[in-house]
């Protein structure tokens, strides 16, 4: 049974959509925090890529997916230190530094991988999915949505946690103030630099987690440039949800599906030019930006450095 409505097509689309969407959710969540605090992080792609490599090395070294995710998150955090020092503390141009982080991470991970693993191409430990009882028994879509590694469900938990922090806690309020009214926050004794530092470090951690998820749960191995634009997609998703971060779950899975469409189409035996399908997520982003981006809410002080001496 071939075709667009066949079981194999839908279940592989759903399952692939979740696998490809989780990294977007992690990284998009990170970017959302950073944007709320007034830092436009164009280096997200680089932080994801660094996290992907760090996760790969950690998982190989400790023979553990969880240690891999941990070391991936930490790698992303370490890379985000560049952004903290240069953009938050020294007020450098956020876009230039973001490009620097992306190019530098692309270069250094490709070099390290090529010099150390190019002959062996080792694979990371196989992950074991956990099927959520009952839900995973739903026909056709059940296994696709509810039979994944626990770190996939963790993404949803983290989204709700961050949503709660932003909405209902003092630190969440400070983050939003750092993006909208940094001078007011400073006047209230909030410390714009401290809040932005915390936000950017969380971004690095989450982007690193997203990147290592690609390697550890998705692909099973590292290849240079494996993130392939996912970081940039995540930036747009963060802009689109306009601070309502829970929407990231839906947006992430939808874009994940468009990313995994090629595999699903091939499994279902449908022949379309592969390049057009691979183009789709990026076309979709432009269309969505056009449709919703006009009203997209961005913090007033986004991408503006905060300088205590200037008013």
């Amino acid at each position: 049974m071939n075709g667009l409505f066949s079981e194999v097509f839908i279940s592989s689309l759903v399952s692939g959509g979740v696998i490809a969407g989780i990294p977007l959710i992690y990284a998009g969540l990170g970017e959302a925090i950073s944007e709320r605090a007034g830092v436009l992080n164009v280096g997200l792609e680089g932080m994801m890529l660094g996290g992907a490599y760090g996760g790969f090395v950690g998982a190989l070294h400790f023979h553990s997916t969880w240690f891999g995710l941990l070391s991936g998150g930490l790698t992303g955090m370490i890379i985000s230190l560049f952004m903290v020092v240069l953009c938050v503390r020294l007020n450098s141009n956020q876009i230039v530094v973001g490009i620097a982080i992306t190019l530098g991470a692309e270069g250094v991970t490709a070099l390290l991988h090529g010099a150390i693993y190019a002959d062996t191409y080792p694979r990371v430990p196989v992950v074991h999915p956990y099927a959520i009882p009952f839900l995973s028994n739903i026909p056709i879509i059940g296994p696709g949505f509810f039979n994944h590694h626990i770190s996939a469900y963790l993404a949803v938990v983290v989204v709700f946690f961050v949503s709660w922090v932003l909405k209902s806690t003092g630190i969440g309020l400070s983050i939003k103030a750092a993006g909208d009214q940094p001078h007011a926050l400073e006047a209230a004794g909030g410390g714009v630099h401290r809040i932005r530092t915390i936000s950017v470090l969380s971004t690095g951690l989450l982007a690193g987690l997203g990147g290592s998820f690609i390697v550890l749960v998705g692909a099973g191995l590292f290849v240079p440039f494996i993130t392939n634009g996912k970081g940039f997609l995540a930036i747009v998703l963060a802009m689109l949800v306009r601070g309502r971060v829970r929407w990231l779950i839906v947006a992430g899975v939808l874009f994940g599906m468009s990313l995994s469409l090629t595999t699903a189409l091939q499994l279902a035996g449908i022949d379309v030019p592969i390049d057009l399908v691979l183009m789709l997520p990026f076309v979709l982003i432009i269309v969505v930006l056009f449709a919703f981006g006009r009203r997209s809410y961005l913090p007033a002080a986004l991408a503006l450095p905060y300088d205590r001496e200037q008013r």
Binding site: L86, L90, I101, E106, G107, L111, G114
Partner: peptide
């Protein structure tokens, strides 16, 4: 040197980082 040809990419990233630092020093 038997390494993949990505040194240029890495160096340009570094160049940008140092450039940002340099701007700050000048300021």
């Amino acid at each position: 040197a038997d390494i993949p040809n990505f040194m240029v990419l890495f160096m340009v990233g570094l160049l940008l980082v140092f450039m940002a630092l340099g701007e700050y020093m000048q300021l």
